[in-house]
Amino acid sequence: MKIGIPRALLYYYYYPFFETFFKELGCEVVLSEETNAKIISDGCKVTVSELCVPIKIFNGHVVSLMNKNVDYIFVPRFISIGKEWYCPKFIGLGEIVKYSIDSMKDKMLIVELKNKTDIPDRIEDYMPLAEKLNVTKAQLKNALKKAKISFLKCRKLSLQGYTIPEAYSILKGKEVPPPMQKADLTIGLMGYVNNVYDDFVSMSAVKKLREMGVKVITFDMLDENIIKLDKSKGKQPFWTFARKVYNAANYLINNVEIDGIIHLTAFACGPDSVIGKMMELECGEKDIPFMTIRIDEHTGESHVQTRFEAFTDMLKMRKGAK
């Protein structure tokens, strides 16, 4: 059986998990190609304009997979981790896809994930797949166990300072240069994995910054223990990944010698309108430079380049003056 996985949203966090999971169940995994202009324009065409770019891109990838002759397209519904919720658009993803792309109704493979931890391996959540994929509970259990191992392998690489795309390459046996240790500047690039690591959307933000001599730290390079939900820190952001990003920024501001924080956010992102301001205020208190880069489907590359250049110039001058 061929399962299509859209290269969008939490592909950039959980792909090793789901790839292993489906392969263990004897399925073939078909991944959509990297985001490109056509995928974005297809996504925008089928999606209502009010939704954020990441969702439009997800739909674009779904459209692209429909031409790849797959049996099902995997559309996970991430609901909660413990008592914490995902962004409402993740919770409603199945409906968004279904009502955007008419022919998708019978092609979607939906699981409803209510994890206890960062690892989505609760067997109950996957039971509805047993019939569709013609597998037993024991097979599902075994596949989840293997999936967890792949996910943790990837997390380990992230903690060493590899970006997620680099970690995926390493898992596929490719050579990747080791993470930057020393650099002129260290910047926390705060944003969701699907914005930071989709090179088309972020205009290769990580690469651009590294070329300017910057060591880039993202939330996924920090241990989950550091950025976990912690009510002792006061009221925490309501949504899982928003909490991760916000706590990571907070940790970097207070515990790591960083020169600045860049918030990479998609136009019309609800959670970010809250945590963006919170991060800006935290940075202000500690006198750490903060910049927002807002991206949408029309963003021009030269604007992003100018802002990165000006920001790093400023940080270098500040550093030189100290």
Partner: peptide, 13 residues
């Protein structure tokens, strides 16, 4: 501040 750029913003959309 002290001849060093400490913050900036540019018009966005």
């Amino acid at each position: 501040k002290d001849k060093i750029v400490t913050d900036f913003s540019m018009n966005t959309v």
